[in-house]
Design a binder for these strands. Structure first.
Lengths: 343, 343
DNA sequence: CTGTTAGCGCGTTCAG
DNA sequence: CTGAACGCGCTAACAG
């Protein structure tokens, strides 16, 4: 068979034209009469020809691949499901284009080297999709200087840089507000929240929690904000250490679904029923929430929409297609199931 | 700043040597005295130089990237956790090398095009890591003809091709045997198994189940093999439709952990206690199994080991390092927790 | 040991 | 409309 890689010159020879004619035909250049183009495409197809992207990149400076920077450490039960479905969503979205996807951690976990800089320097990608929380000064300068099209997905870039950068993320303040408001509307007055120890998204969710409390003339008690690692286990343990306070409350706003699951497991061990004795609302809307008993009421992050917008915009930029600058905060929505009930 | 990409010629000019000397130095060619090499490397580092991989590939035919073919549809609760941790394990393993990773579905979900062929044709990768169940004739020929180094991970290549190909997978027969044997040792005689409707891995697990039953002079009853979709929901429903048979059994071998979880949820709704009334053993050892009540007894798939072996071997092949041909079936192990008990 | 000279495969002027 | 010629950045003979 065709063991040797076929090049445009091979096609040229067969077609009896020069290799530039082949190049033009395959790139749909109007200069070449359609008849010739078709004939050449036909031959190319028969030979199973595809451009050699290395050669092509060298002369066009376009690689035809997008760099997806995606964090490490999300294979655990803590944050896994959400990010897992996110990565698949991105892959699916990109599969609709002709771009290939290089996936990398933000930093090399062994050397600490910045993969963003690496990919740019090696000229391996045309654009970047960043699912990262932070970037250091160095990386910022690099991205900006290199002018490489870049979109932040899910995480919001630092406000100082927000103007220069494109992003699409969800409104965590609004999500926190929404979750707590739902609890209030169910008649709850004494509401605890379990939040993460770090990360602006948690700060914002907590801010939403506080705000809606104040808006409804309910007391905001700092003690009711329980800081805890965002794993199932940690949430489980936190319940134990906060059990007295919990017994005096009628509802808990868990700032991740996984925490909600850990909380509910611990509650069960204490003989506290959900939602009869206490209501629980989560955040993320991971698939598993639907299968839990009781089914988890939660805040839905519109990840699909976010991914679609981000990927489309990046591809538009890369292909020179005009579209609006993307700087968008999407509103999360409330998904009512069974774990939160009237007081 | 250095807005323009720096090339080896720029370095050459600064160092007062020719560009080939720079190339040789940066590639650690012994011909160049170490002193010169160091000086040049120093300059390169200061300028933040990295090779332009397109150019490099064009002359060496090496891209410095590995293609990871990873299936679609594993973002769900059904099979998600296992494959999710697998993808992260591979990423981590590859991060220890200087290879970048292009990730792709086996086929483009929209056009149906083979991404394996695409990546090879476009000359985008040096080697392939295949986490796929099947390959069509066309793809086989392509891989073989192109002589691109390829390793099958997790899934075993069709036996007809097993000789020509390198792979590392786990022994599903042995896993099925192990799981059922554990149940037998606990004194169970009437054992059901919930298996998937398709996939050789399920066939083999079932074969292991049957074999150990026979080895222990226990009846093999085809009715006790419950075929069901491998999702949580499907398993849940299957329990309902098989409830009479279940009531006459004392143990269930669920061929995935997720099915085990669905089964246990359904059992609970029927007021059947695990493991007091019935024992359940799973397969996969997903993280969540540890958090379930009761904690799930299951078969552990040595994914880390498999990944390490596969990635190392591929990198060895790519770098020309001699190492043994990889054609290995790894034994799974039993992880005893709480969901299976003495009869 | 080092510089010069060819390509690698493709895109792109620039003539014709 | 089409072909010849050059260059992208790098590696690899081939001389010196």
């Amino acid at each position: 068979m065709n063991k040797k890689k076929v090049t445009i010159r091979d096609i040229a020879k067969i077609a009896g034209v020069s290799h530039s004619t082949v190049s033009r035909s395959l790139n749909d250049n109007d200069m070449i009469p359609e008849k010739t183009r078709d004939r050449i495409k036909e031959i190319a197809k028969e030979l199973g020809f595809e451009f050699n992207y290395s050669a092509r990149s060298l002369s066009t400076s376009k690689t035809g691949t997008i760099g997806l920077i995606f964090p490490l450490g999300f294979d655990d039960i803590a944050t896994g499901p959400f990010f897992n479905s996110m990565i698949n969503g991105i892959r699916k979205q990109l599969a609709q284009t002709s771009y290939d996807t290089i996936i990398d951690f933000p930093k090399n976990p062994f050397t600490g080297e910045s993969n963003i800089k690496k990919l740019i320097n090696r000229r391996k990608v045309d654009g970047l999709l960043l699912v990262v929380q932070t970037l250091n000064e160095d990386e910022w300068r690099f991205i900006l200087d290199s002018k490489i099209p870049t979109i932040f997905l899910h995480f919001r870039p630092p406000t100082s840089a927000a103007g220069k950068v494109e992003f699409v993320c969800t409104d965590n303040f609004s999500g926190g507000y929404l979750a707590t408001e739902h609890l209030i509307q169910l008649g709850h007055k004494n509401i605890l929240t379990f939040t993460g120890k770090e990360g602006y998204e948690f700060e914002n969710r907590t801010m939403g929690y506080k705000t809606v409390l104040a808006d409804n003339n309910l007391e905001v008690d700092e003690k009711k904000i329980v800081f805890c690692d965002i794993s199932y286990d940690a949430a489980y343990e936190c319940v134990k250490s906060s059990i007295e306070m919990i017994k005096q409350s009628s509802a808990i706003f868990a700032q991740t679904d996984i925490m909600a699951l850990g909380i509910m497991a611990a509650l069960k061990d204490f003989g506290i029923r959900v939602p009869e004795d206490i209501s629980v609302i989560g955040y993320d809307d991971i698939e598993y929430g639907k299968y839990h008993t009781p089914k988890l009421t939660t805040i839905h992050q519109p990840a699909e929409k976010l991914i679609e917008m981000g990927c489309k915009r990046l591809v538009d930029k890369l292909s020179g297609k005009k579209s609006e600058k993307l700087q968008k905060v999407i509103e999360p929505t409330l998904t009512i199931r069974q774990s939160a009930a009237k007081v």
